[in-house]
Amino acid sequence: MVYLELFLCFLQVGCFSVGGGYAAIPLIRNQAVEIYGWLTAEEFSDLVTIAEMTPGPIAVNAATFVGIRLGGPVGALIATLGCILPSLIIVSILAFLYEKYRKLNAVKSVLGSLRPATVALIASAGLSILLIVLFPSDGGFALIGEKFNIIGAILSAAAFFFMRKYKSNPILIMSCCGVVYLAAGLMFE
């Protein structure tokens, strides 16, 4: 029964991938390629590429991709449900506990220490993305030196300025960056 297998496979991915996408990739690979043989190694690497190019969490993207090939839209839905069910149960319980105990002094102290660490983690993720933009592996629009992507740098600086100073809509700004970069790419071709 392919639906049940899909459900159980992605249930495990949902249960054991702690820490987001990069933790989920090896798990999905192990389940879908090695255990069930639903995808070849090459299809899996295509899947990772597509998941990076489309919005949404990689686990949900993978569940949809594998699900639709094996069981059509129903398969996609069942695989996705398997993938989010552990979160729904565990995080709902944590949300309840958080609301109930957040005013306790001990919990307050823990949350107070988690906040600076959280900011640091977001900063680390942001800086990594910025460096990929400034020094892309393909060089991008390298006008200075060999590696520095000048258009990416200008776009990042402008986007930062508009969001910081004018509180501009981030999704609008991100889309504008995409359009400008595409236009620049076509112009310099």
Binding site: P136, S156, M174, G178
Partner: peptide, 21 residues
Amino acid sequence: LFLKGMQAGVAAMILDVVCSL
């Protein structure tokens, strides 16, 4: 190309959030 450009905006958005927090 579009996604590469979008990434520039994503980096700026995250850094903006980091500044506020």
